[in-house]
Design a protein around this nucleic acid. Structure first.
Lengths: 197, 197
DNA sequence: AAGTTTATTGACTCGTCAATCAACAAAAAC
DNA sequence: GTTTTTGTTGATTGACGAGTCAATAAACTT
């Protein structure tokens, strides 16, 4: 009993199933059949809607990036003042959702994927560019011309803290990571005032 | 004409070939046959010396970690003074060797591997522990009781800068990354003196 | 010299998996 | 009401790959 307009529904189900499976296995070694089964359809249908396995992965990556982007935008929309905006970005970056097994596996594997799949690399560049842009905008009133430089180092700090938190044994602590990032920012701003004064 | 004592030679050749292949492909999707071929032997022999493909990967990971450790030790051995020791660690961490394709792929994939293979996770923890310990020791004379905290953030900064440098388009610039890490350190130390004074 | 250990590989097994295809079903268009 | 479009799957193909094994050969032991 084929209902019409299934395509977007099926695609979304496949994307979500892909992320879950990657999280379950911890790598990209997931079969199209596994994904399709979790999404409640045959593997043939997965191939029908997405042309290939790689296309499924890329769609999943876009979805993860979209989720993250939405989280940042949501946090920014209720933030007040420059420091509030920076805090909002940190809160979004270190939110519990980003530490769920699926998200962690997704990010780590997308970094690997970016090594060999140009489109994956492009997507990651888009994400990094947006993060840098958001940080720079938030920092401008606080750091003036030094905003871009501080945004760059803060961006690296965010990635590094995330990686640490994710690789360490035991439950990740996003709040602690955000705290450390803020301390880094404070230190950088402090040097700015010293140089300026 | 089987010469005796081939085992260590074969194993080393396999480990190096594994790293090269991972670098070439950009992922762990390398076959034992590919590795064995590059190492100049049959795949059966690879299975003979290492029990399984996973064992080969873990040996390769140990090798990468050993290389990195040796680089750090070498740089430390000629370093003078606390700041010199920190600089040495940064120089080793951002050395050109760590930005070679093989090393990059190795690190990224080992992070992924650590998600599902406990031994891989353990090895990464050893590496992180050593880095933290080295940084803390070097920072002690500069930062006193704040040394451990600064070491933690500097460690995250190192990983984050490495990741950025590795994921960005264009040739990586280890020197620039080391420079940013040093600036971060300066900022942290500056705050320390302010609080102390 | 007979037996054991080490080195080595080609051939093989057994499984898996991405991708394709033929076929079927229902809705829409004409 | 027939044709076309959309949805769907079971079955199949074709390839590949990890791991095993029997067989061969050289060294070392006794």
């Amino acid at each position: 009993m084929p209902k019409l307009g299934m395509e977007p529904i099926r695609k979304e189900a496949l994307v979500k199933a892909t992320i879950v499976e990657i999280g379950r296995v911890g790598s990209l070694d997931v079969t199209v059949s596994q994904i399709a089964k979790r999404a409640g359809m045959s593997s043939a249908l997965a191939h029908h809607y997405f042309g290939s396995k790689e296309d499924i992965f890329l769609a999943a990556m876009r979805h993860i990036l979209t989720l993250y982007g939405a989280e940042v935008r949501g946090a920014l929309s209720v933030a007040e003042g420059p420091e509030g905006r920076i805090r909002a970005i940190l809160r979004a970056s270190f939110s519990p959702g980003n530490f769920r097994r699926e998200a962690v596996s997704a990010w780590l594997n997308f970094w690997v994927l970016a090594q060999s799949v140009p489109e994956a690399k492009r997507l990651l560049a888009v994400y990094q560019g947006r993060l840098r842009s958001n940080l720079t905008a938030g920092l401008r009133p606080l750091a003036g011309v030094r905003a871009p430089a501080i945004a760059a180092s803060l961006g690296a700090m965010i990635d590094g803290l995330y990686l640490r938190e994710v690789l360490k044994s035991g439950p990740p602590d996003g709040a602690a990571a955000a705290e450390l990032a803020l301390r880094h920012l404070e230190a950088e701003l402090l040097r700015g005032t010293e140089n300026a004064g």
